[in-house]
C-alpha cells in the first residue's frame, strides 16, 4: 500500500512538472509584460507545490522549508517587478510616488 501511495505522489509530481513546462510556453509567447509576469507568478506557485510533493517522493522532509521560503520570495519578487515597471525605479517609496503622481496630475490640470 505504501508503494502504491508513492506512485501516486510520483504521478502528482510529474503532472506538476508538465504544468510548469506549459506555463513556460505562456512565458515565452506572452504578448504583454503582464502576461509574462502572470506566467512567472503561476510558475512559482507550481514550484512550491512541486517541492512539497517531491519531498514525499524522496522521503526527506527538508524541502518543505525551502518551499516555505520560495512561497514568500515569489510574492515579494512579483510585487517588486510590478513596482519597477510602474515607476522605473526600486528606491522610490510607494507613499512618495503617490504624492509626486498627484502633484504631476494637478500641474497638468
Amino acid at each position: 500500500m505504501d508503494d502504491f501511495m508513492s506512485y501516486i505522489n510520483l504521478g502528482t509530481a510529474f503532472f506538476l512538472l508538465v504544468s510548469m513546462a506549459m506555463m513556460l510556453g505562456r512565458l515565452l509567447l506572452g504578448p504583454t509584460l503582464y502576461d509574462r509576469l502572470l506566467a512567472v507568478n503561476s510558475f512559482g506557485t507550481k514550484t512550491v507545490l512541486f517541492l512539497c510533493v517531491f519531498c514525499f517522493v524522496i522521503g526527506r522532509p527538508d524541502g518543505v522549508d525551502i518551499a516555505l521560503l520560495y512561497a514568500l520570495m515569489n510574492f515579494i519578487a512579483t510585487i517588486a517587478v510590478l513596482k519597477f515597471f510602474r515607476y522605473r525605479a526600486l528606491d522610490v517609496s510607494l507613499a512618495e510616488s503617490h504624492i509626486s503622481k498627484a502633484n504631476a496630475e494637478s500641474e497638468g490640470a
Binding site: N41, C52, V64, L68, A71, N74, F75, T78, I79
Partner: peptide, 20 residues
C-alpha cells in the same frame, strides 16, 4: 510546515493576482 506553506499561499496568491 505544510499548513504554514498553504496558509502563505492562500494569503499571497490572491494578493499577487490583484496586484498584477
Amino acid at each position: 510546515k505544510l499548513l504554514l506553506v498553504s496558509f502563505f499561499l492562500l494569503m499571497t496568491s490572491p494578493t499577487a493576482t490583484h496586484a498584477v
